[in-house]
């Protein structure tokens, strides 16, 4: 297990794109320490901010997090990264495989455009988790994103594929969703705004937009399969899916092939 230990709170945002077990496996500790990660004219390198201990395994631990650590695991395709602390924006952006775990909180755009692998955030996530960054075609795109705490607004904005599981979410969860599955025990106002297809499963929600219409309660095979797939990720969400649910169809302002399942009680 390779370990990068943050010496002190970084003086600026740090860009950890390409700091993955695979990328570090072919380098010596001195070479790794020289990798540029600074984002200002200070010109900081990895060794300026972290102590480096490598063992060439497929597992990397970042000890001591900061909300200024951007793009952690953004290029991950295999192996695991665990962060003992917080991270900044674009956690696991474009990640293709492997496992990424953050023990603290994550900044905005966690899992943006991630096509594979598992991202777990034990704390809260910022706005646009599983959402699309500026000018991107899609948000989460096949990966699995688990947020144990509370996600900000626009969770899963424009997500195209994959699964998002969140404890709570802010307003406009699943906005402009193209496809995929998003489950949250509670969301803010206007879940599913502009969604084209896809499935939202919510325990409770704020105001629902006027462009969603109730289609009743249903006993569908899909729901049983959903329960089974959610059970491994979060028993609470699986229990929600297994309970009595009411279905809303929408967003009728767009294609209207999306659905929101809410607890019927």
């Amino acid at each position: 297990m390779s370990v990068l230990t943050l010496r002190e709170a970084p003086p600026e945002r740090l860009d950890l794109l390409n700091i993955t077990p695979l990328a570090l496996s072919g380098l010596s500790e001195a070479e790794v320490a020289r990798l540029p990660i600074g984002t200002t004219r200070r010109g900081l390198s990895l060794g300026d901010c972290f102590t480096v201990k490598l063992d060439r395994s497929d597992s990397l631990v970042i000890e001591g997090g900061s909300e200024r650590l951007d793009q952690v695991g953004a290029a991950l395709s295999e192996g695991t990264i665990r962060v003992a602390g917080d991270v900044g924006q674009r956690l696991g952006e474009g990640m293709a495989g492997g496992s990424l775990t953050v023990e603290g909180a994550a900044g905005p755009f966690a899992g943006a455009g991630a096509t594979g692998g598992l991202i777990t955030i034990e704390g809260d996530a910022g706005d646009h988790a599983g959402g699309a960054v500026y000018a991107a075609k899609a948000g989460l795109d096949g990966a699995t994103l688990i947020i144990r705490g509370r996600a900000g607004d626009h969770l899963g904005d424009r997500m195209r594929r994959g699964v998002i599981v969140a404890g709570e979410a802010g307003a406009f969860a699943g906005s402009r969703m193209i496809a995929g599955t998003l489950a949250a025990l509670k969301t803010g106002d206007h879940p599913g705004f502009g969604m084209r297809r896809g499935t939202l499963l919510v325990g409770a929600h704020g105001a629902l937009g006027p462009t969603f219409v109730e289609t009743g309660t249903h006993d569908l095979v899909f729901l049983r399969l959903l329960v089974r797939s959610l059970r491994a990720l979060s028993p609470a969400h699986a229990d929600l899916a297994a309970g009595a649910l009411r279905r809303y169809s929408g967003d009728l302002a767009t294609l209207g092939k999306g659905e929101i399942w809410t607890a019927a009680a």
């Binding site: 106002d189 206007h190 502009g194 006027p210 462009t211 219409v213 967003d251 009728l252 302002a253 767009t254």
Partner: peptide, 21 residues
């Protein structure tokens, strides 16, 4: 205007324009 964001009103109008409502 719908209560809440102006975007909701535009969405509601578009649903009627598309014939979905």
């Amino acid at each position: 205007q719908e209560s809440g964001a102006l975007a909701l009103s535009v969405a509601h109008l578009r649903a009627f324009a598309k014939g979905h409502l």
